[in-house]
């Protein structure tokens, strides 16, 4: 569009100056919800079962590890997929119970709410794994970082596959598929330390770093897709 017409249009639509603008903007300001407040508010909407289940699993990891001291790390890491299952189940709760439309009708964008809830659950899980890692490393005789990797890798692997499955398979079947995945990762973890114990030697640590990086990237990717999908629904 030519500049002359644009200037003329600007002039043609010139309105008399507003009189109360400065006073109004001085008197009123928008109060935005701070991230911490959002996190706390949304944490209240996470089902109590997710919090209780996480604490029970944490206790289970410690009890199981204490009962099998030389293999404390593997026993502990075999249970972390179940923690991830709790997080994935929580992320798809609205979808599973057919409450998605109700959440979409709320003033808070569903993507923000989902992000805050997952952050709350994720922070708790990170805290629990952070507490478990030094304890299991003492009982199992491995380094803290090494133990952390063994705990995090199955967790992130289950989370990534679980999120992908819950996007593809709707309803209770989705949850069943996620449970089956978590169980499979648990069994593979347990089997691997019996059939291929060399996988857990210190020389194999670079491979574990790569596996952790891949699982981290995959779960991050899946999480972003889940958030984008909820945004698309919001404005559909």
């Amino acid at each position: 569009m030519d500049r002359k017409l644009k200037t003329a249009l600007d002039a043609a639509f010139e309105a008399p100056p507003p009189e109360g603008k400065a006073a109004f903007l001085r008197a009123h300001r928008r109060r935005e919800l701070r991230p911490a407040a959002l996190l706390l508010t949304q944490a209240g909407y996470v089902h109590w079962w997710t919090w209780a289940g996480s604490c029970v699993l944490f206790a289970g990891i410690l009890v199981l590890a204490a009962g099998s001291e030389p293999q404390a790390v593997w026993s502990g890491s075999a249970l972390t997929p179940l923690l991830a299952l709790l997080a994935v189940a929580e992320s798809g709760r609205a979808k599973r119970y057919g409450m998605e439309e109700l959440e979409l009708a709320c003033r808070m964008p569903q993507s923000s709410a989902l992000l805050a809830r997952m952050a709350a659950v994720g922070l708790l899980h990170l805290l629990l794994l952070g507490i478990s890692a030094p304890i299991l490393s003492i009982w199992g005789g491995t380094g803290v970082v090494q133990t952390g990797i063994y705990l995090l890798t199955p967790y992130l692997l289950t989370a990534a596959i679980g999120m992908e499955l819950s996007r593809r398979v709707r309803g209770q079947q989705g949850l069943l598929a996620c449970t089956a995945t978590a169980a499979l990762v648990c069994v593979i973890g347990e089997l691997a330390q019996t059939v291929r114990p060399e996988l857990y030697l210190e020389e194999m640590l670079p491979l574990w770093y790569i596996a952790l990086a891949i699982c981290l990237a995959a779960s991050g990717f899946e999480f972003v897709r889940m958030i984008r999908e909820s945004e698309a629904l919001q404005w559909n």
């Binding site: 309105a15 008399p16 507003p18 009189e19 109360g20 109004f24 009123h28 300001r29 928008r30 109060r31 935005e32 919800l33 959002l38 003033r107 808070m108 964008p109 993507s111 923000s112 945004e231 404005w235």
Partner: peptide, 27 residues
Amino acid sequence: DRYRAEDITQETFLRWFASDTYRDTGR
């Protein structure tokens, strides 16, 4: 009408300010 226009403008912004749980999503 400049006075009614200003009233409506302020009402628009007041409604936006009031939605304090609405986070900025670029819209």
